[in-house]
Structures are given as C-alpha cells and as structure tokens.
C-alpha cells in the first residue's frame, strides 16, 4: 500500500521529502532501539560468566556469546522443565475448553432467538467491567471450598471461562455465515449439534485462530492467579511463576535471572515469528471491542 506514493515521490527529491524521510527512519529506528534495548541487554548478560558479570559493564559484550552455562543453571534452579510442561498442559486444556465453550455460546446467541439472549450478552459485557484482581478475595474462598486450590485442574477450570471479547469475535464471524447453510442441513435431518460441529465449526477457523492467539498469550503470561492458586511452587509452577524463584537471595544474580527471562520468552518469540500476521490481525480484531 502507498508504494506508488513513494515511487512517485522518488522522481523529485524536494527538501520536504528528504526531511520527512530522515524523520521517518530516525523515529522508527529510535523506537525499535528502545523496544529491544532492555531485551538485548538481558541476552548480553545471560551469556556472561559470573566473573565477567562482576567485572565488566552490563553493556560490554560477553567473551563468548555461546556460553549457555547460565541457561542450564537457571533452567535447573527455577525448575523450568516442569514449568514448561505445566504451562503446556494448562495451555492445551484451557484453549480447548474456552474454544468449545466460546464457540458454542456464540452459536446459540447468534442463531436462536430466545428469552434471555440479550440478558446473557449483557451479563458478559458487564463482567468485562468488573475489576478481576479485586474479586480474588472471594474467588479464593470459593476455590478453597471446592478443594480446587493447589490443583492444576482447578486453575484450568477457572481460566476456561470465556469473555465478551472472544464471544464478540465469534458472533461477528457467525454473522458472515449464511443461515441457509444451517437450514438446508436441518432439512436433511441433521441435528443442531451436528450442524454446529460438522458444518459451522470448521468454517469458523479464522475466528478460532484469532481467539487462540489472544487467549494463548494471556494464559501463557498469566501469573497473578497462577501464583495465588498453584501454591506448590516446585511441582505446580508455570513458566511465569517459575521466575519467582529468582526473587529473594538470588535477586542480584542477574546473569542467571536474565537467562531465565530469555528462556521464558522464547516460546512467545517463536510463535510470534511464525504467526506474525495472524497475531497482528488478532490484536486488531480483539481490541476493536476494547
């Protein structure tokens, strides 16, 4: 887009154009630099031996970029093997659960008129306004009474609930799928369950991908509830909470901490590189509703 603009402009370099080009690249490069500086400084520090870390400035490049000893150390100390496994299990079940729940609800809300339809929509909209962290006081009591504290499935159930934003994304997508599709299948004798699972759900794939990304990022990075409800920090840590290991007495060993931090964001980085465009459109779609 706007490529033609630049091509046209190239023929006559006016002073204004040159200044604009300079401002443009200066802004972009400066902002990119600020965005990656904190991360790059972690990569530098993570590759330093303890002696190097003690004696050199933080921004001095390490003697050996391929020094992985801090990574191994951090991986062991923070129990990150378990953390990655737990985070994966949580991600799989929460994403599966929330997609089933969310698509089903959106299907019913979009395709059928029934008393309570508007009420359910409003309930989800209003729920988005409620301050979540504030209500953990009560949620904690509920979780305790249901014996769900300190269990992986308890945390998974809690995270499974859907939210107004994903429902909205699904409903928007359902609106583009013609009702005649359902009708003809119904005339052929398919049940509503069958219509949903074998006809509509496969067509919903783009909306599901969008929600997978949004929810996936949220779940992988969630730490407040994980910290509150998965109290056995050895066996039940997630990637986000495993980093808590580095507070306290280990709090100043930044070469190890940085290695842990970098490891925790590697999965996000890989997914980001692979799915860049879907992530951008997911963010754009999700935020329209706020």
């Amino acid at each position: 887009m706007a490529k033609t603009t630049a091509a046209k402009v190239r023929h006559h370099y006016s002073a204004g154009t040159i200044i604009w080009e300079i401002i443009k690249y200066a802004s972009v490069i400066l902002c990119s630099f600020i965005a990656i500086l904190p991360i790059v400084s972690c990569v530098i520090t993570a590759a330093k031996t303890p002696e190097e870390y003690q004696t050199t400035n933080v921004m001095t490049p390490p003697a050996n970029w391929l020094n992985f000893s801090n990574y191994l150390e951090a991986f062991k100390t923070a129990n990150m093997g378990t953390a990655f496994r737990n985070s994966l299990i949580i991600l799989v079940f929460v994403l599966l659960g929330s997609i089933i729940i969310g698509t089903q609800l959106a299907y019913v809300l979009n395709r059928f008129k029934f008393p309570g339809n508007a009420l359910i929509r409003n309930m989800f909209t209003f729920a988005a306004l409620l301050p979540g962290i504030a209500m953990q006081v009560v949620v904690y009591e509920i979780m305790t009474n249901l014996h769900l504290v300190n269990t992986m499935y308890g945390y998974i159930i809690m995270m499974c609930g859907t939210d107004v934003m994903s429902i909205y994304i699904y409903i928007q997508y359902f609106e583009n799928l013609p009702v005649s599709l359902d009708e003809s299948a119904f005339m052929d004798g398919a049940s509503y369950f069958r219509i949903f699972y074998s006809i509509l759900l496969p067509l919903l794939k783009p909306a599901i991908v969008t929600n997978l990304i949004l929810k996936g990022v949220g779940v992988y990075n969630e730490y407040y509830c994980a910290n509150l409800y998965l109290q056995d920090k050895r066996a039940l840590c997630t990637v986000a909470t495993s980093l808590y290991t580095f507070t306290g007495p280990l709090g100043s060993q930044y070469n190890m901490i940085c290695a842990g931090v970098i490891m925790s964001l590697l999965p996000a980085l890989i997914v980001f590189i692979a799915l860049q465009n879907q992530i951008y459109s997911g963010v754009a779609a999700g935020a329209v509703k706020g």
Binding site: A35, L37, P38, V217, Y223, C258, Q276, I279
Partner: peptide
Amino acid sequence: GFIFFPYLINGIAIGFIFKFF
C-alpha cells in the same frame, strides 16, 4: 516486530527486565 514484541512478554519477566534495566 521489534516495537510490538514487548507486548508478548509476561509481567514477571518484565519486572526482572526493568529492575535490571
């Protein structure tokens, strides 16, 4: 990509990154 990526980092990691920073 550079400018967007920080959005994908978890809060605890950000905490450490900036304590260090």
